[in-house]
Design a protein around this nucleic acid. Structure first.
Lengths: 156, 156
DNA sequence: TTTGAAATCGGTTGACG
DNA sequence: CGTCAACCGATTTCAAA
């Protein structure tokens, strides 16, 4: 991921624009303009500046996985054999749609993942049949999220 | 979080709408209409149905924390004293802006968090001064994400 | 559910302080 | 940086099929 500008300076108006769009990506520019008291064209210009700086990494509709039956979230620490190339394991993990995050981490695990499953049976299937069958995976440690209490972005 | 309808049925057109908006929340409805070959009004109706079902949990601009200098992501397992109320600890964690996720989890930790920091010094400060000073926190275990390889939502 | 049309509103640009 | 004005495209609603 390329960072185009580390020295981006954002003022109070930029913050208001970002906060509005972080809360609802479809907030009309003109509505933001009315709220902050400058013209829509000015907001538009500032948004282009913020996009060029790389600060804005796109926008997304957020899907509630529970409505699709994915009621279980789990974190999984993965131990890999020393001889195995980690990128190959990541490539395999990418093919498992239940895996929604994957990190190389410090500590005992080689790889740390966040995943979704419909229920415990489904979770067990992904762990034992999908993840464990990846070449080089020796062992996993699983932590089920009983409840997520905080989910947010960095404060602007 | 209330789920209004667990038995939502989504067809191929709904999937195309969702995929377009999951990739870019500001994709014009009329552009989606052109891509899937039905009218904008029909897309509009379907979106209202999807929103009512609870499947769509809003939309967000995604901020790249690296551009703000937050180059370090870490996962922290938190041990709480048995006597302490977990909700009180979560309340304190909510006041630490660097904490971006917080879960009650199975396993040895009471609470598991994901956090951002500008560098290792900042990380240490948050761990030792902010988190450790929360009443009931006895110990933490930290895993730094060296690199995030996968970051996505559930597949539609 | 879908459409087309109508009305309203938002996005985008360019010239200019 | 900011405004204004103008143009064009998007959103929203509704009657009809």
């Amino acid at each position: 991921m390329k960072i185009k500008n580390q020295n981006i300076v954002i003022d109070g108006i930029d913050k208001k624009i970002l906060r509005a769009l972080m809360a609802d990506a479809r907030t009309p520019i003109l509505e933001i303009a009315r709220q902050v008291g400058i013209s829509g064209a000015a907001i538009h210009q500032r948004l282009r500046k913020l996009e060029k700086s790389g600060l804005i990494d796109g926008s997304k509709f957020i899907i509630n996985p529970k409505v699709l039956g994915y009621t279980t979230m789990a974190f999984v620490g993965v131990y890999l054999d020393k001889a195995v190339s980690n990128p190959e394991a990541v490539k395999q993990l990418r093919n498992i749609p239940e895996v929604i995050e994957c990190h190389y981490t410090t500590g005992n695990w080689s790889i740390f993942i966040k995943m979704l499953a419909k229920d415990n049976e489904h979770l067990m299937h992904v762990l034992n049949k999908e993840i464990q069958s990846i070449n080089g995976v020796s062992r996993t440690e699983t932590f089920i999220s009983l409840q997520q209490q905080i989910d947010r972005q960095i404060k602007i």
